[in-house]
Amino acid sequence: MTTLEAATDAARDNLIALESEAVHIFREVAGEFDRPVILFSGGKDSTLLLHLAIKAFWPAPVPFPLLHVDTGHNFEEVIDFRDRVVEKYGLRLVVAHVQDWIDDGRLVERPDGTRNPLQTQPLLDTIAEHKFDAVFGGGRRDEERARAKERIFSLRNAFGQWDPRRQRPELWNLYNGRHRPGEHVRVFPLSNWTEADVWNYIAREGVDLPSIYYAHKRKVYRRDGMWLTEGPWGGPREGEKVEELTVRYRTVGDGSCTGAVESTASTVEDVIAEVQASRLTERGATRADDRLSEAAMEDRKREGYF
């Protein structure tokens, strides 16, 4: 066996183990909770999450609805993709529009126009309104240092807050989903996946993704070292020059703070090669919201962020 073949075998075994673990987690939640929901934005991690949920319950339909917190600054391609997926699988989608919270004064627009931090309140309000008791997220521990400390079943108090010092020990594959009324549990089936695992699995399973994950021509402008898209929100401001470049997105979030990367990777295989060669993490390359401080993610998580 050549080194390359051995490496390919190793990667495949690893994906099988990760898939089996995620499927186990979905079924555990279905068995123990009354009202689970999957956070679904149309991004690659949540699309993968849904793909695994479909496999976990096949040939029965997925027994939970989807929830999207829509900042109003989303990429059109992603929203179209989201709606196509929902229709294709006959799923139920709950959308919480951040704009509604701004319109009635529950939230105030930030001076910098970024809406990512504004998602927390609509998320928690919607969880409370629908009495969701388990909320699946696509978070991965390799994304960020604070996320590396997250449990697969993560208890949130009645205010939706995460307290890293009061996490339950997580032993074997036995998950403790007990919670009091008003509390809920965030569940992260992709905890042990890396960005490379996600892309290798997407390739293996032929998972369909929004087109903006692949190279395309786009009008962008430079801000804080990132290529941001021209759009009705945000920019460009005066003095920021718009250029047309061939780019793709490594992560997809709020359009006002998610940067594109220059790339000619137009297929999933190209993307895998690019990810392997990259010297930047996906969040470091593309997310202004994580650059606010050394502990930006930890602070947002404590407040109840995804």
Binding site: D142, A148, K149, P164, N192
Partner: peptide
């Protein structure tokens, strides 16, 4: 170090 951290 306070809590178990998972690394890949």
């Amino acid at each position: 170090t306070i809590d178990v951290a998972y690394r890949y």
